[in-house]
Design a protein around this nucleic acid. Structure first.
Lengths: 226, 226
DNA sequence: CATCGCTGGTGACAAGCGTCATTCGCCGGA
DNA sequence: TCCGGCGAATGACGCTTGTCACCAGCGATG
């Protein structure tokens, strides 16, 4: 199995991954997927410090990650969500559909309950935030490799407790308000009266427990409700 | 220049003979500032593999980074831009104003011309994108430490396009307004009068040629002027 | 048929927003 | 010394927002 290192100055063209110097133990074979090259390299370095983890590949976009998953059959895929050509969530779905043994751990910036929910539906075994301490990653990989799950606890709570309180109209109106449209403009665009638009906005503001449309928009977007 | 391959599964062992544990050599003392803990840890691991670089500290927000800069007086500060309490750009400004010898290298996701421009005004020596290959970082640090500069070339071109029309106050006010603060709240926070805040907002709205604070905020942020 | 509940609308009111003309103090340059 | 410019404040004006109480149609459900 020939493999090319994707990091340019790393000029090794291929080598044997099965055989690990001095250690035939339960080495966890990990594939990384992350579109920001520098973060990708850094994560690779980070995991490389762990004696029981072996980074067998690193992909910078969704499609190559998918090919690498099929080719390398890693124990664990560590992936970002936002990537070109194929998101981490779609990647997880494919792995689920193909009934592969590769576990998926999402590592992302976005603490949006909506994302977590979709990730769980796609059968991911881990969901970490980039805000979390770096040690958590290796720990999570071990847990997942043992068959466990590792979900950001704070986020897990949010995903259960908080359902989207907004209805369709409120979402529409809030989206436009967030772009700076006035009540009148929104009314024109949705074929409503100006007063009705203000009522919906007021409703949304009340439901979200904030003070104005801007905060309402920010909160709703942050929660993944828009 | 001896270099160690940073990618762990790339098992090239290139030894650096320069480096001695006693280190009388040009060890580059680096402070990291990055709000995403996992990325911070990963970058730390990445740079830790370089034989001529020593990571002397790692801060997760702007204020602690600033304290660490004063305390540790590192050769180079590697900082993200978007951080709580103090952005990387403000950090660079402070270092410039205090005429410290610490060089600043910005490492960010944002390829916004305005950011680069303000970074250059603040006298930073390097501006890298997280999209860039990981080995660029260490390379840039060395170049900067030798007194050189390392600016993302593509971005450097764009920077000459559009100038930021906003002044300091307008930026501050707009940032807070974008978070949903009212004129009164902003006034309290900046020790201004409510009327003055509205004047600044009006100015900003006019300069940007938009219709209200929300549009002004969105436009300014998109251009990298905040 | 009565009666909910839902979607949308009205009108009124206070508070906040955006604009403008004007003022004041202060600093730096001519 | 005077003058211009800048940062900040003021007050006034009209428009927009956020809130609330209330009303009208309309489809279900009893």
């Amino acid at each position: 199995m020939g493999r090319v290192c994707i990091i340019p100055w790393c000029r090794v063209e291929s080598f044997d991954t099965q055989k690990v110097p001095g250690n035939s133990r339960a080495m966890i074979r990990v594939l990384l997927a992350e579109d920001q090259a520098m973060v990708l390299g850094a994560l690779s370095a980070l995991l490389g410090l762990e004696s029981d983890i072996e980074v067998v590949g690193a992909a910078a976009d969704g499609e190559t990650a998918w090919r690498d998953v099929q080719r390398l059959k890693p124990d664990v895929l560590v992936t970002d969500i936002e990537m070109p050509s194929l998101t981490g969530l779609e990647l997880a779905q494919r792995i689920q559909r193909h009934e592969m043994t590769t576990k998926v751990v999402i590592v992302t910036t976005f603490a949006r309950p909506g994302f977590l929910r979709r990730a769980l539906d796609a059968g991911v075994a881990g969901y970490l935030l980039k805000d979390a301490p770096a040690e958590n990653l290796a720990e999570a990989l071990r847990k997942v490799h043992r068959g466990g799950r590792s979900i950001d606890p704070q986020l897990a709570l949010d995903a259960w407790s908080e359902a989207d309180p907004l209805n369709d109209r409120e979402r529409q109106v809030l989206r436009l308000a967030g772009e700076g449209r006035s009540a009148g403009e929104i009314a024109g665009q949705l074929n409503l009266s100006q007063g009705t638009v203000r009522n919906y906005l007021s409703e949304a503001i009340g439901k979200l427990g904030v003070g104005n449309r801007i905060e309402a928009f920010r909160l709703a977007r942050q929660k993944g409700w828009l």
